[in-house]
């Protein structure tokens, strides 16, 4: 087959909803796009453990502590599923970690915001994991098999993350006036960053069209963001909290809630590395990797020793 016919038969498979597997032909750009997207996704799961890990030792009860630990451990697992999915495309784990640690790779900007009160654990589980679920459910049908299968696993586990967060918000919202204020403050701070998790506006998102054509993505950033706003407004009402944006209003004609324009300057600024916690997060990851070096070396040495013993 010629290059042209390879590409035509690739697109035909995509259009027929036949999944692409690691050994199948795929255009270089498809491979590159997936490596970038899956590794960024993996990095986000791994760095995403840090803001919540901040509160594990200070969780208000043993129940909350056990739950938070289990959630953070799940996020570590999600990172591992995704790193192995990316590895099937020909990048190594070490290369990906190197890209993360040198700042060459991005991760979701949301994790560059600080977690300053316990209510942030509620807001993160509810809004950040909620937005992640909205993004991830369509990815269970993404065109690359290993990515889709990893996402099925991830989505099964995410639902408890969101529910435990909402439960924290509910307890605070029904608690003392100070607790309720804490919940409100967390909602106000996390609202806009959570909406930015869906990525830039469609109008300025040049990769979207190609990703849709390749069925890597199935909905645009703006579609998913709108869907998230629509379901979350109801959830805010049930909590009995104030809406975090004075411009949220039902639009009868569109059948959706309207809301304020987001501050995209802030978004790009955080993406560029100038968010409140970018440096701290990266430094923490690098330190963990470097502090773990002797463990990795010892395990390799032990495995080697056992191998030679067996051979002898």
């Amino acid at each position: 087959m010629t290059q042209v016919s390879f590409e035509a038969s690739f697109q035909k498979k995509i259009d027929e909803e036949i999944m692409i597997e690691p050994q199948d032909y795929m255009p270089d750009e498809y491979r590159k796009t997936l490596i970038r997207q899956i590794s960024q996704h993996a990095h986000s799961e791994i760095v995403g453990m840090l803001p919540e890990a901040n509160w594990i030792t200070r969780a208000p009860s043993l129940r909350r502590k056990a739950v938070l630990l289990a959630k953070v451990q799940d996020e570590g697992g999600h990172g591992l599923y995704l790193y192995s999915a990316a590895e099937t495309l020909g990048i190594t784990r070490d290369q990906m970690l190197h890209q993360l640690h040198t700042g060459a790779a991005k991760y979701s900007s949301i994790f560059n915001y600080p977690t300053i009160t316990w209510a942030d654990m509620g807001a993160i589980g509810w809004l950040v994991d909620g937005a992640a679920i909205m993004n991830q459910v369509p990815l269970c049908r993404t065109s690359y098999g290993p990515y889709a299968r990893a996402m099925v696993r991830v989505c099964k586990e995410e639902s408890f993350h969101q529910r435990q967060g909402y439960e924290i918000m509910l307890s605070l919202a029904k608690g003392t006036p100070v607790q309720k204020q804490m919940a409100q403050d967390a909602l106000n701070r996390w609202w806009a960053p959570a909406l930015m998790m869906f990525g830039p506006l469609d109008a300025v998102s040049p990769n979207t069209a190609k990703s849709m054509e390749w069925r890597i993505k199935r909905f645009t950033n703006d579609e998913l963001r709108q869907r998230f706003i629509d379901v979350t407004v109801e959830q805010i009402r049930i909590l009995g909290l104030e809406l975090p944006d004075a411009n949220i209003k039902w639009n009868e004609e569109r059948g959706h809630y309207d809301s304020s324009e987001l501050n995209w300057d802030e978004f790009w600024n955080v993406v560029k590395g100038n968010g409140p916690c970018n440096k701290e997060r990266l430094a923490t990851r690098v330190k963990a990797w470097e502090d773990g070096a002797w463990v990795r070396e010892a395990a390799s040495a032990y495995a080697e020793k056992r191998k030679t013993k067996k051979a002898a």
Binding site: T92, R93, D94, Q95, L97, H98, H101, T102, V286, W289, E290, A293, R296, E297, A299, S300
Partner: peptide
């Protein structure tokens, strides 16, 4: 830092 070739 990248620890190339020593990957498990």
């Amino acid at each position: 830092m990248s620890n190339e070739n020593k990957e498990w």
